[in-house]
């Protein structure tokens, strides 16, 4: 356990720079987006009111107040989120492959640590989770800050304030990343963890058997996905909705746990018996 924590910390220190860069880009671009979008709106308001001589009230009914929605739906806001998602997706592969590249192949050291090799797997998957949740947590902190910037930028009468929850529920993409209930958070990120564990297994297959491993990895992933969705497929096409939704839900959770456990076991087996430096 202690060694696991040490490894988690060690792995985190290896990614911390990338992580900080992602946070930085998110902060800068999103805040810039708030400022630019607000300015755009205010400039338009100025133009309409002062040059086209539209009364203020008329302008507000025609163009609406400025709210966070204008920002949330812009590339300024969504772009950094997409970048972070891509960064994490990329790092899922990099977290393994970086140990095998270069002349200082670090995987020697990792495999020679006097601890169970399961810990290597757990430490890496924990890091993906920490990174992901870290980005989510940061976005949750950023939102109220950005709302504050918006308040400074746009006068009261032109502004329509939104709560954090409302911002999040207003676009579905954001609502997937930050679901509106804690149970969903666990379910979504649990599913994500399962997906990452499948990918890790496929990567370790490639590392163990090279070309053949890629094929094995693809087959393993396909089987894992099929096993996971098999209850839904059966329900839909064979069983004619035999299960009540609640039962299907429980079965799905059981399937997810099975797939996760199989991936962990398989990865452990590969690390112990099949992987090669």
């Amino acid at each position: 356990m202690k060694k696991y924590l040490k490894l988690v910390n060690f792995e985190f220190n290896r990614v911390v720079k990338l992580f900080i860069v992602l946070l930085g880009i998110t902060l800068v671009v999103q805040v810039a987006g708030v400022i630019i979008k607000s300015k755009d709106y205010l400039n338009m308001a100025n133009e309409k009111i002062n040059e086209d001589l539209i009364p203020k009230a008329q302008f507000l009914t025609d163009y609406g107040q400025f709210s966070f929605l204008h920002i949330i739906r812009s590339l300024w806001f969504v772009g950094p989120i997409a970048l972070c998602a891509a960064g994490v997706a990329f790092y899922i592969f990099l977290i393994w492959y970086r140990d095998w590249v270069g002349k200082n192949i670090f995987v020697y050291r990792l495999l020679m640590l006097p601890t169970t090799r399961f810990n290597i797997f757990f430490a890496k998957i924990s890091n993906i989770l920490i990174m992901t949740l870290g980005l989510v947590a940061f976005q949750l902190i950023l939102l109220p800050l950005e709302a504050m910037v918006l308040k400074w930028m746009v006068p009261d009468e032109f502004r329509n304030d939104m709560g954090i929850e409302e911002m999040i529920t207003s676009i579905p993409e954001l609502n997937i990343i930050i679901p509106s209930s804690f149970v969903e958070l666990i379910l979504y990120y649990g599913a994500g963890l399962m997906a990452v564990s499948i990918l890790f297994t496929a990567i370790l297959m490639e590392r163990s058997f090279k070309w053949k491993g890629i094929i094995a990895g693809v087959i393993y992933s396909a089987i894992a996905v099929i096993v996971f969705i098999s209850p839904v497929l059966l329900q839909e096409f064979v069983l004619n909705s035999y299960f009540y939704p609640m039962e299907l839900f429980v079965i799905e959770i059981v399937m997810a746990v099975i797939v996760l456990a199989a991936s962990v076991w398989m990865s452990g087996f590969l690390l112990k018996k099949k992987v090669t430096v």
Binding site: V8, N9, F12, N13, V136, A137, F138, I141, I164, L185
Partner: peptide
């Protein structure tokens, strides 16, 4: 670093929910 980020995660997500 690791402790800090985990604390931030717990605090931020916890507060939100």
């Amino acid at each position: 670093k690791c402790t800090a980020i985990i604390a931030v995660i717990v605090f931020s997500i916890g507060t939100f929910y």
